[in-house]
Nucleic acid binder design. Structure first.
Lengths: 243, 243
DNA sequence: CGTACCGTTGACTTTGATCAATGTAAGTGG
DNA sequence: CCACTTACATTGATCAAAGTCAACGGTACG
C-alpha cells in the first residue's frame, strides 16, 4: 500500500468523471483527495476484501478489473459484478458493517481506499459529494434490476449477448475500443455471473462465431456485427445505461 | 392525498423502527415528520408511480403491500420486489431522476410521501438520518445480491421455499404470525419474481402440500414444517436478514 | 517436458416451459 | 337469487433448452 504522489490524485485520474469526483468543484476534489491518498495494488487472483471482513473502506478502481462474489451458506457462489475502473466497491457492506461478498482481482489492479467514516463526514459538508454517493448507490440498484431481468427472463444466448454488449459499451465509455477487447475473466466466471454453465457459455461463443457475430480467440473478443449482437441482447444491452 | 393528523405521524407508526426514523433522536424525528406529512392511499391494482415518471419522492409504506416491476424495451416485465410496511420505494430513481420501474399496490395500501429534495437537505444536517439512508440503500443492494443467487443458481422448489421463508420472516418481524399468512399477490407475480411460470409455481404449491410442508388454501398459506421448508430454502431463506 | 488449468465438443439427461383443458371463486346484471 | 362473466388457479401431456458427465485439446508455467 502506498501514499500516492500528486501524480496519481483524483485530479488527473483517467476515470475521475465516472468516479466519486464527478460533478465536484475543484476545491471539493482537493478535500476528497485528502482522504483518498491511500492506494493498493492487488495481483490477479488476490482478494481486495473477503466475505465477513469488517467494513472500513469503499474501494474505487483505478485500473484493472475485479469480480464481486457472494457465498451462500452451502458454499455455492454467485458472481454479482464485473467491476471496471471508476467503479466503487463495498457499498453493500454499509448496513451490516460486514462485507457480505468478496472482491477478487481478475488481473493486476490498482484501487483507491476510501475510509468511509471520513467520506461520510465530508459528504455531510459537501452536498455535491453526498449527491454523488446517492447517485452511485441508486445507479447500482438500477443495474441490479436489469440483471434480475436477465437472469429471470432471458435465454442463454440473450444473456451472453447482453454481457458482451455491456462490456463493450463500458470499455467504449473508458476510451477503449467497443469492437475488440480482452475479457479478463475465465469462462467459469462468465457462466456463474449469467446463471449458466461454462459448457453452455463455450458453446455459445462457438455459435456466435459460426454465425459471424463475433471472432473469439481465447479471451480476446472481436465484435463483427455489433448491431446483430445488440439485437440479440434485446435492448437489455445497456444495463449500465452507457450504450 | 391527505395531510395527516398527529395520530399518523412517524412517532406512533407501527413500523417506525424499520423505516427512516430508526435510530433517530426524538427531536430529529420531529423534524423528519415536518417533511413527511403527506400520505397517499392507493387501492389494489393502482400504481404509486409509473416507469418514466419524474423522481420527486421516496415512498414509505405504512400499510398494505406493493410490487415493483421493471419493463424491458420489448415489453417484458420482471417483478423485482414485494414491499411490506416500513420499506422504502423509489431509491433506484435517484441517479436518473426518472423512475426506472413502476410500483403497484397488491392490496389497498397507505404510503408516506417523502420529498427527496427536502429529505436530502435534512440528511445534510442530521447525520443519523444520513446514515439511515445509506443503510437502507446498502441493505437493498445486499438483498438484491441474494436474489441474484436465487435466480442464478437455485432450482424452482428452492426458489419458492426461499420466498415463503422470506415472507414468513418479514411478517414475523412486523408482529404477525410467521406460520400463517395471506399472500397478497397472484401466482403470476410470484412466478415472475422467481423467474418461473405460474404453472410451475402452482405445481410446487401442490407438491409442498402433498409433502406436508405447507397447507395451501388459495392465497392463504399455513407453514406446517418450518424447519423442512427452511432446509429446502437452503439458508438462502433470510434474504432480508431477518430470520 | 510434464503438470495443471482452462476451454471445447459430444452424448445423454433433466428441469421447467409450453400448450391445452378444466376448475373455482368473486363480482355483475337480469 | 341465479346465470354469466372474468380473472385466477390447477393439472396433464409434450417439448425444448440448458445441465451433466465425459473425453479431449490447447496453453502457460514451473
Amino acid at each position: 500500500m502506498i501514499n500516492s504522489p500528486a501524480a496519481i490524485s483524483c485530479s488527473n485520474c483517467s476515470v475521475r468523471r465516472l468516479c466519486l469526483p464527478a460533478g465536484l468543484a475543484q476545491k471539493d476534489i482537493d478535500r476528497l483527495e485528502n482522504i483518498t491518498r491511500r492506494k493498493k495494488l492487488i495481483k490477479a487472483g488476490e482478494t481486495l476484501y473477503r466475505s465477513g471482513d469488517p467494513f472500513q473502506n469503499l474501494y474505487a478502481i483505478r485500473s484493472g478489473s475485479l469480480k464481486t462474489v457472494v457465498i451462500a451458506a452451502d458454499g455455492d457462489t454467485q458472481v454479482t459484478h464485473f467491476a471496471l475502473p471508476g467503479e466503487l466497491l463495498g457499498l453493500d457492506a454499509y448496513s451490516s458493517r460486514i462485507h457480505p461478498s468478496y472482491a477478487e482481482a481478475l488481473e493486476d489492479s490498482s484501487v483507491c481506499l476510501l475510509p468511509f467514516g471520513h467520506l461520510e463526514i465530508l459528504a455531510q459538508q459537501v452536498p455535491a459529494l453526498q449527491q454523488q454517493i446517492y447517485s452511485l448507490f441508486s445507479e447500482e440498484l438500477r443495474q441490479e434490476n436489469e440483471i434480475l431481468m436477465l437472469l429471470g427472463k432471458r435465454s442463454a444466448d440473450t444473456r451472453l449477448a447482453a454481457l458482451l454488449i455491456n462490456i463493450s459499451s463500458r470499455y467504449a465509455r473508458r476510451g477503449y475500443s467497443p469492437r475488440e477487447f480482452v475479457l479478463s475473466m475465465p469462462r467459469t466466471d462468465i457462466a456463474n455471473y449469467l446463471g449458466l454453465t461454462a459448457e453452455t457459455v463455450s458453446r455459445l461463443f462457438s455459435r456466435f462465431q459460426r454465425e459471424g457475430l463475433i471472432k473469439v480467440s481465447g479471451r480476446t473478443i472481436e465484435i463483427l456485427d455489433l448491431l446483430a449482437l445488440s439485437d440479440l441482447a434485446g435492448t437489455h444491452c445497456g444495463y449500465e445505461g452507457e450504450q
